[in-house]
Amino acid sequence: MAWFKRKSENIKTDEPKKGVTDGSWIKCDKCGELMHKKQWESNFYTCTKCGFHFKISSDEYIKILFDDDSFKEIDKKIKSVDPLGFTDTKPYKSRIEETIKKTGLYDAIKTGTGKINGDEVVFGCMDFAFIGGSMGSVVGEKISRAVDKAIKLKKPLILISSSGGARMMEGVVSLMQLAKTSSKLAKLDEEKIPYISILTNPTTGGASASFSMLGDFNIAEPDALIAFAGPRVVKQATGKDLPKGFQKSEFLLEKGFIDLIVERKDLKSKISQILNLIKN
């Protein structure tokens, strides 16, 4: 028995309902919360209610991490070619051209140098919007050059992963980008230069089986999917139900494969803190 009762089911107004479709509102993919775009942006592109971390682009990470105007992009215009002459439902060449037009990006990673709270670093950040953040020759080459730059400048390397894995349309050449990035990181390691790997949602397949897992520090954003074989593949192969939270950041922390989970708002200060602790 209720203590009190509403007279009518809903509050009625005379005005018609206001639309929220003018593009200034964002709906959370996870909890459905509506946020104003400004609010969402100032909350580091995370949900104001449940903390869900939205996928964001390299430009947004650069804004979040780097001191004002300190970031300088390098190797901007390296572009994919089509080494295999690959065609599935459409030719790889036109897929690239269309994606470049659609996203304004040249490939799935942006690299450069900049300052994080005054410390100069070499930086690379993947863009999931470019063919699922897939890793082909351009991603491999840009990471490889970023490593060379870090060795030359003797500055730390930071890479942010957001990738579905190797780029199938480059076949075995894309597989070799795992080898390429890992062997360049082995060289960086010999030079005793720090490498921080930041794993965001999702980091799977070729990326996780190479550079993303090889950080001196592996940092993950909360609730990110981090896996070798994605959940669908595992389920199909084993026919078993997957454990709760399987392949999420928290799961990987528990299993011992990442050092820490850091919310996006704390990413910059945490990177600074670590860099300061290992400085000479």
Partner: peptide, 19 residues
Amino acid sequence: PGIEAEERGQAEAIAKNLF
């Protein structure tokens, strides 16, 4: 691509070998 393989770090094991 098994559940236990993922739990024990299939990606890390391969990455480490490449490195």
